[in-house]
């Protein structure tokens, strides 16, 4: 009979029996409940309270001066509302990294792709326009135009 070769590695013998039981059960359950209550605090804390909707203002001098029919943003209002952040992020990358600084809108009009020099030209009222949403939804956000 050959002796089995002993090795540094490999499973030999039986697995140890593990007792299935939760120690300090009450403490642990209480801890879990307290944790869930705490992290859901922002949700249930605001139940039933209403916050006035943001009200971005469009009455800057530059916009006022525009004739009624030309008074529109570089793209459709809904598009700007939903995607201006993607657009600005894209502009920033395209301008800095690829040198593409001219934006052609769907209507065919050309704009300089720049938050500071194009967007804020018309929307010069940061606190009544940008901050209406940005500060309301993200009060700690450090966004500023420059």
């Amino acid at each position: 009979m050959k002796e089995p070769v002993k090795s540094e590695f490999g499973t030999v013998g039986e697995k140890p029996k593990v007792e299935k039981k939760i120690y300090n059960r009450n403490l642990i359950l209480a801890g879990i409940i307290a944790f869930v209550v705490l992290i859901t605090f922002p949700i249930w804390n605001l139940q039933g309270k209403s916050v006035p909707p943001p009200d971005p203002k469009l009455d800057t001098p530059v916009i006022q001066k525009m004739p009624e029919k030309d008074r529109k943003c570089i793209e459709d209002k809904n598009y700007m509302r939903n995607y201006h952040m993607q657009m600005l992020d894209n502009w920033r990358n395209q301008v800095v990294r690829n040198g593409n600084r001219q934006y052609t809108s769907l209507s065919g009009k050309k704009y300089t792709a720049s938050l500071q020099n194009t967007c804020l030209e018309c929307h010069s009222n940061k606190s009544q326009f940008c901050d209406q949403c940005h500060l309301k939804c993200w009060p700690r956000a450090s966004w500023r135009p420059n």
């Binding site: 090795s7 540094e8 590695f9 490999g10 499973t11 030999v12 013998g13 697995k15 140890p16």
Partner: peptide, 11 residues
């Protein structure tokens, strides 16, 4: 701790 050799996959 379990007084067994380390598993093979560890090698």
């Amino acid at each position: 701790r379990n007084e067994v050799p380390p598993p093979n996959w560890l090698k």
